[in-house]
């Protein structure tokens, strides 16, 4: 599990405004989708890894994230290598196998495209944690609100996250209660049995937490939630010169990347 930044570690990234980081994240995400050349995506990956190093985040985290995506990465690579319609034949594996759409040749374009897609997967999967691990939750929510995300939505997110420990403890209590009744399939049972016992866990959990929502509703009403007044915030965020520099760079990167793609670069 990846934890949300506590804000304890001070690095240059922690000092940035949440909006800047969100926009930079979106830029990298869009560019990763725009390019299909492995060289360009490798450049993006280098940028992300450099930022990761600047943020002094643990490298083990990248390994933890990527291990979940290893199988799909291998499959993407294999599918592209064997079935991407390339022109530069490198070597012949067999005669054409029509019913699976295999020409019999491994092509240079297939290998390059396969590598590009795997690199795209890696960039996409590690870029989001980079933002979140360097942004304390209140700042993240404030950034969303400042970016004109409706306050109610941001409130739902904040409340959900603060309720999470209580729900997890509810869940543990229900599991213990089920164990007392002799149901032991949460961890060790077969797949279907595990899914069946999941129903026995989810139903009381949902009902129990819905009951708690009544208390939350009363608390919100008593504090006049939704009253038509201008909201103020405990935290305030302001752009500093570094934010402006990064924002300008992000916009330039984005425009430059799209322009390159339109001109025919960054693709196979």
């Amino acid at each position: 599990m990846i934890g949300i930044s506590s804000g304890a570690r001070r690095t240059p990234l922690n000092g940035l405004d949440g909006r800047t980081k969100l926009i930079a994240l979106l830029t990298i995400f869009i560019l990763a989708l725009v390019f299909s050349s492995p060289y360009y995506i490798l450049g993006l990956l280098a940028l992300v890894l450099t930022t990761w190093a600047i943020a002094r985040l643990p490298w083990k985290l990248i390994k933890d994230i990527l291990k979940f995506f290893l199988i799909i990465a291998v499959i993407i690579l294999v599918v592209q290598i064997f079935f991407y319609p390339g022109e530069t034949n490198l070597f012949r594996l067999s005669g054409p196998i029509g019913f699976i759409g295999f020409s019999g040749y491994i092509t240079l374009e297939g290998i390059m495209f396969g590598i590009a897609m795997v690199l795209r997967l890696v960039v996409i999967m590690i870029v989001a944690p980079l933002l979140v691990l360097t942004t304390p939750l209140p700042e993240f929510m404030l950034a969303l609100v400042k970016l004109k995300v409706p306050y109610r939505f941001a409130f739902i997110m904040t409340t959900a996250l603060s309720l999470l420990p209580s729900i997890q403890s509810h869940s543990a209590i229900i599991q213990q209660a089920q164990l007392c009744r002799g149901i032991t399939d949460f961890e060790t049972g077969r797949l279907l049995t595990k899914l069946r016992t999941t129903a026995g866990l989810l139903v009381p959990l949902i009902l129990g937490t819905f009951r708690d929502s009544q208390t939350l509703d009363v608390a919100m009403s008593s504090r006049a939630f939704g009253a038509p007044v201008k909201r103020t915030f405990l935290l305030e965020s302001h752009f500093c010169p570094t934010d402006y520099i990064i924002l300008i760079l992000a916009i330039l990167f984005l425009l430059g990347g799209v322009a390159l793609r339109v001109l025919g670069y960054g693709t196979l």
Partner: peptide
């Protein structure tokens, strides 16, 4: 909203 937050 409280229910939506709980669901989230």
């Amino acid at each position: 909203i409280s229910v939506l937050a709980i669901w989230a």
